[in-house]
Amino acid sequence: MNAEALRAFWDEFSESRISVAALAVVLAIVAAAVCAPLITPQDPYDLGNLSLSDARRPPGFVGSKGYAHVLGTDAQGRDLYSAILYGLRISLQMGLVAGAIALSIGGTLGIVAAYFGGRIETLIMRIVDLQLSFPAILLALVLAALLGQGKTQLVSALVAAQYAYFARTAFGAASAERRKDYVEAAAATPLSGSRIVFRHLLPNSLPPLIVVATVQVANAISLEATLSFLGLGLPPTEPSLGMLIANGFQYMMSGRYWISVYPGIALIILIVAINLVGDQIRDQLNPRLRR
């Protein structure tokens, strides 16, 4: 895609106000998560920093350190505003890393299947289709349970649950391209196979893969939160958003709603905003909806 095409793409994107707003929200959240140490009053992972006398205080409470906890504090006395931004950091990190790995593995498998065809295609796509017939959440749940707690294990579980979507998409786009005359012609010349893959199949598979990637990053974040909520995600020392919500759950019955509710709102804003951006990109890349 050259600069002109990108510009046209952006012009069309910016016609939808909701999408632009959603994109702004996503960028703002990413920026806030990246700059978290600079814009929060507390490092929520430094246990020496926490004081139990500040625990479970309502929003606006001025704690022992002398500043107001705008969103209240959790059961360990963490400032929730700080904990949410640090949690967003982890959630985004997990979602992006898992999404990127799933994209590379799934994309490669799909394009390889489309390029070679025959037995290799049957083998790869049968496995992919089989996996797609099981709900992703169940796969992730089982894998997270089997692999145990930790970032690497969690990312592996997310990747295993999601690569198949990328493989299907890449295969669909690449095999349609593979059958076109110009690719057949290129394959008949002594040009190397990698040239066909990198010059023709890959660039043509990228747009649909990008669409799937946006949605899958949002799904990965949501899955990660669900797993952490069920106690199968990350270790509790560095709470992600799901873990914060889970920790606050037991205090909700006694009316201390803020421990669960605010991290949840942050999570939902992030997921919905990513989905809205993804929807718009999908509509713009969908030839059937072209004006």
Binding site: A218, S222, A225, T226, F229, L230, G242, I245, F249, M252, M253, G255, Y257, S260, V261, G264, L267, I268, I271, V272, N275
Partner: peptide, 22 residues
């Protein structure tokens, strides 16, 4: 329906409890 698709199930469950039970 878009919300129903994108908001995680466990979060909706919490809100239901918070609102209707608590």
């Amino acid at each position: 329906s878009i919300l129903g698709f994108s908001v995680p199930t466990f979060w909706i469950g919490l809100i239901l409890i918070l609102f209707f039970a608590v």
